[in-house]
Simulated assay, not measured.
Amino acid sequence: MRKTLIVSEVSTFLRLHKVTVSEMARKGRLPAAKVGGKWIFFLDEIEQFVQESATFKLQEKDISEKWPYSNGKTLSSSGSRYPSLEDRLYRKALGLPIKS
């Protein structure tokens, strides 16, 4: 039998807010089915979604060219105020807007 997940489990797995997961399911961006008013996901389909989304061929250089931080603003001692490379790649793989 296939393993099923609920919104909160997919949210944890994908490191996204529950509302984002529900919206992505509603818009058809995540494989899901609504059963009894609740979203149900198959683990293997979510894993396949992540794997297919992560097949992009971005290198760190490509990201830096798309994110020219010309103003150089940083927080005093805690580093850049911009999202990390890892966060940008992760959000791009999932087709989410990249926060700045």
Rank of each mutant, 00 (worst) to 15 (best):
A32Y: 04
L16T: 03
K3R: 12
S22N: 09
V21I: 11
G28E: 02
L5G: 02
L43E: 12
I46C: 01
V19R: 15
V19L: 08
A33W: 06
S8H: 12
V7Q: 12
I46D: 03
K38E: 12
G37T: 03
F42S: 09
K34E: 15
V35C: 00
K18Y: 01
S22H: 06
R26L: 14
V7Y: 01
G37Y: 00
T12A: 15
D44L: 10
S8N: 14
F13L: 15
K18N: 15
A32E: 05
Q48M: 04
T12F: 07
I46P: 02
E23D: 14
F41M: 00
A25Y: 11
M24N: 02
I6Y: 12
Q48P: 01
H17V: 00
D44V: 10
V21M: 11
S11Q: 13
W39K: 08
A25L: 10
L43I: 05
R15G: 10
T4H: 13
V21T: 14
E23P: 01
V7I: 09
P31N: 07
F41K: 03
M24W: 04
V21C: 14
Q48A: 08
P31A: 07
K38H: 11
R26F: 12
F42I: 13
G37E: 02
L43Y: 12
E23L: 15
I40L: 13
S8P: 05
L5P: 02
P31Y: 14
K18L: 02
G37A: 04
L16N: 06
E45Q: 14
E23T: 15
R29S: 09
F49M: 01
G37L: 04
R29Q: 14
L5N: 07
D44Y: 08
E45T: 00
F41W: 07
G36F: 07
H17K: 15
K18F: 00
Q48R: 14
L5D: 03
V10A: 11
K27V: 08
S22V: 05
T4C: 06
V35A: 00
L30W: 06
K3D: 10
E9V: 07
R29C: 05
T12Y: 09
A33Y: 05
S8K: 15
T20S: 04
R26D: 04
F42C: 09
W39L: 03
S11E: 14
I6W: 03
V10D: 01
M24Y: 12
W39G: 08
M24F: 11
A32W: 08
K18I: 02
W39F: 13
S8F: 10
